[in-house]
Amino acid sequence: MSSPVIRLGLRDWDHLVPLASGQVTAPGFTLRVDARDTTPDVLAEPELDGGETSFSRYVQARAAGDDRLVGIPAFVMRGFRHRCVLVRSGSPLTQLSELDGKRVGLTGWPDSGNTWTRALLRAEGVGIGSVDWRVGPLTAGESGKDRLGSRPLPPNVSVLDEGRSLQEELAAGRLDAVLTPFMPSELFTRDSRFRHLLADHADAERAYFGRHGFVPGIHLVTLRREVAEAHPDLPGVLLAALEQSKRRWVRRRRVLADTTPWLLRELTESALLFGDDWMPYGVQDNTAMIHAFCDELRAQDVCREPIDPAALFPDPALAAPAVPASAFAADH
């Protein structure tokens, strides 16, 4: 009897390559990974059994009683946000606290990454209500993204006019800064009109980890509820497969480190700071991060319903990935 086929829509993160290529399997199931350029809407695509989902939108849905998706605490997109604040190259601004009272653009109001970035501003004394926020696409022509969510926006949040983009508004001086999870292509050129607000964002991020002990989670993997209920062992099996894929990716990356000039140095520094795993999966190792994020959604009024973090991942099999000893073997 053939095993059930589970189709997942995921962006092509490199740590998912072992899973997508079949090097890592999920016992009892056949996983098919649909590589996506953008985050899929799992509920809007009936051919998908699950996929990559915004952490913010997942939490908001569960808080509102919508349990059509079952979250897997595998945060396939996570990262520090200090690097995500851009200003003009000639801007006098150099600190997060200096954004108080400024005009700041961002790529989506309820987005997970932007929620974490606004949390950094709040920690520096910049209130959500003390910024003139403008929501819009980073570059002209972007479409197909829900930037506003389903709730009324605060009075100090407005939407860019059709045809305008955050990067051009910033370049023209109509914005003082932009919050974006992805960088405009010209940032990687010598004559870029933009720079990071924080000259040494890596140093600020190391300090953040020292205070909080986690790297913020942005996206997680979800399954349709009917799929999870039809296969009760699938969530735990999928969590373990994602963990094994990540571990194999880490091992292979340390061997094949010549993909960028200084990757080996980055890998060494990361291991010294974070230990063997800077992006742990499972509820146990993400409890502090999950609670902090839920607190921010409430504090920023992105989510108005009470949030019970314990209700987000109630399946005991999701406490920690059940990884076989073979997954820790050396790989050359």
Rank of each mutant, 00 (worst) to 15 (best):
G127F: 02
D132I: 11
S56I: 08
L120T: 05
I72P: 01
L106K: 04
T117D: 09
V126H: 06
L69F: 03
T94R: 14
S130I: 12
T94P: 09
G127R: 05
D111G: 04
R164N: 08
G141F: 04
W116H: 13
E168H: 15
R68H: 06
G136V: 05
E124K: 15
L120R: 03
G71L: 10
A64K: 03
D132W: 05
E124L: 10
D111H: 10
S130G: 07
D146L: 05
N156W: 04
G125Y: 05
Q60S: 14
L99N: 06
L86M: 11
F75E: 12
V157R: 01
K102Y: 11
V159L: 09
P152H: 07
L86D: 01
I72K: 02
I128F: 09
C84S: 15
V157P: 02
A140C: 08
G105T: 08
R81M: 15
W133E: 07
G129Y: 06
V104C: 00
R57V: 10
A140R: 09
G127A: 07
D66T: 12
N156M: 02
P154V: 13
A123C: 06
W116E: 12
G129H: 14
L86Q: 04
S56W: 07
F75V: 02
F75N: 09
R62Q: 11
Q60P: 09
D67A: 01
L93H: 13
E162A: 15
R62Y: 07
S56R: 08
Y58I: 03
T53A: 06
C84T: 15
V135W: 02
S150F: 01
W133L: 06
L148F: 14
S143P: 10
